[in-house]
Design a protein around this nucleic acid. Structure first.
Length: 450
RNA sequence: GGAGGAGUGGCAGAGCGGUUGAAUGCAACGGUCUUGAAAACCGUCGUGGGUUUACGCCCACCGUGGGUUCGAAUCCCACCUCCUCCGCCA
């Protein structure tokens, strides 16, 4: 959400920032609307002031036993005009906030210009690539009989995976390792948040209203429709989305960023309790509506995956440094896993809606002979805070300021599993070595073999 | 699912339909006192918005949205949320 005052005072700057997002000049329309809104508002308020005055007089007249019917009639006559103006103000306000809520965040000056992901800029590389190429996780996992896409598809459709045995355990081991590292060494507080959230939470982090098609929604069962007994006995199909009759219109979280960031929604936090650092392990649900046909092989892009997420809430002055720190925290777990990675800064065309600046960490995948995203760390500054009204107060200060929020994967568990499988593959026997860091979580197992 | 209760400022908690934006307490801030601090005392102290060069003036906000009224925190309706008890349940 953008500050209309900022746009009023910095229309040129604002339009330049939107131009970097590939948008035309936004301020003329916004400012015209704003002016109209304020014009009507001022006239309405003048009328309200007059009404209040008259009403007060009526009260006085009546108290002293006089006849106030003339005044009462006059005020009653004003009501028609006032109602119209109220409607018009509300209308204009809604139009305005609709426009403002739909515009992306202003990017940092140090974000490189570029049209798409091909123009992202590599910042650093780490690790020795031991296998430049090799079988992908699908071949390896199916060879071991521990990754099963067909069975998952049977019950759930495309973009689901079923892991079993030591492969399932390794996924859990990654989760444990990531969380233990971030809570034990990086100062994050572990959180186990709700996975179903309301509209306003998703609005706060910026997924709504623009990106609803990327999400899964729990729909209320309509009375008389979608009943469990309406399952078609021949096909076994039903149109029912959920049986939770008491819970309606919730969304499955696409990332723990949503519940974690919303912890501070509607709050005024004392500055000395900042930074707040939260880490959570959660499933993530994404419809992948815009990715049809993309990454269809394997478990790289799923409707459901696990992720350990980091969220920081900081004072405005601290967010840039926190961004670097958070990215380093994500890199650390990859270092400990000895997985080769590179860190890039996303160019203007690839930076997400709510971010001012985003670092992606990409891990080397021998099966694809390329680096693929495994973490994304963004500084949203006050963009989300404004939307969710998350503020802070400094010691001794009276006024509040919006906090800055940051989020980053620490890291995506499914993709980390892919990276381990492919980078620790032993072509001699088709097995997968267990990374040193994961051994404590694998009961000391050295290697996954047939 | 059934039956009740409640939503007011940073927090707690009052509030006959007519200067109530809202008592009181706590917290916070400024000051007096003190070597310093505490205590005590005095004072300040909600948010958002419009307008003004400025002092200021004005408007809105007591869960949300409607309604009644000349006038609503206060009355009516709907909704949302939270709490308690019962039932069911991992």
């Amino acid at each position: 959400m953008h500050d209309i005052k900022y746009i009023r005072d910095n229309a040129g700057e604002f339009d330049k920032a939107m131009a970097r997002r590939g948008l035309g000049a936004q301020s003329p329309a916004i400012l015209a609307l704003d002016e109209e809104r304020r014009g009507v508002l001022t006239r309405l308020q003048e009328m309200q002031a007059r009404r209040n005055d008259e009403s007060r007089k009526i009260g006085e007249i009546k108290k002293s036993g006089g006849d106030a019917s003339a005044q009462m009639e006059a005020v009653a006559a004003m009501k028609v005009d006032m109602a119209a103006m109220e409607g018009s103000v509300r209308d204009l306000e809604m139009k305005q906030s609709h426009i403002l809520a739909g515009l992306p965040n202003i990017m940092g000056p140090d974000v490189p210009d570029g049209a798409d992901e091909s123009e992202n800029v590599e910042l650093r590389k780490w690790g020795e690539i031991k296998s430049l190429s090799g079988p992908d996780h699908v071949a390896i996992g199916e060879g071991l009989g521990l990754i099963d896409f067909e069975t998952a598809a049977k019950m759930s459709g495309a973009r689901f995976t079923l892991l079993s045995g030591p492969m399932a355990r390794m996924e859990r081991a990654l989760v444990q390792f990531f969380l233990d590292t971030h809570t034990g060494e990086h100062g994050y507080t572990e959180v186990s948040p709700p996975l179903l959230v309301r509209d306003n939470a998703l609005y706060g982090t910026g997924q709504l209203p623009k990106f609803s098609e990327d999400l899964f929604k729990i729909k209320k069962r309509e009375e008389g429709k979608d009943k469990p007994d309406e399952v078609d006995l021949e096909t076994g199909r039903t149109t029912m989305y959920a049986r939770a009759a008491t819970y309606e219109n919730a969304w499955l979280i696409p990332t723990a960023e949503v519940p974690l960031t919303n912890i501070v929604a509607e709050m005024i936090v004392e500055e000395d309790t900042l930074p707040r650092r939260y880490a959570a392990f959660t499933p993530c649900f994404r419809s992948e509506a815009g990715a049809a046909g993309k990454d269809t092989r394997g478990m790289l892009r799923q409707h459901q995956f696990y992720k350990v997420e980091m969220v920081s809430v900081t004072a405005p002055e601290e967010s840039a440094a926190e961004h670097e720190r958070m990215t380093a925290c994500a890199e650390t777990v990859l270092r400990k896993l000895e997985l080769p990675f590179r860190t890039i800064v996303l160019c203007s065309g690839d930076t997400g809606f709510g971010a001012t600046k985003t670092y992606d960490i990409e891990v080397w995948l021998p099966g694809q002979e390329t680096y693929r995203e495994i973490s994304s760390c963004s500084n949203c500054k006050d963009f989300q805070a404004r939307r969710m009204n998350a503020r802070m107060r400094s010691k001794g200060e009276k006024e509040t300021r919006f906090v800055h929020t940051l989020n980053g994967s620490g890291v995506a568990v499914g993709r980390a599993l892919i990276a381990v499988i492919e980078n620790y593959y032993d072509q001699a026997d088709g097995g997968v070595w267990v990374p040193e860091a994961l051994k404590p979580y694998m009961g000391g197992l050295e290697k996954i073999t047939v």
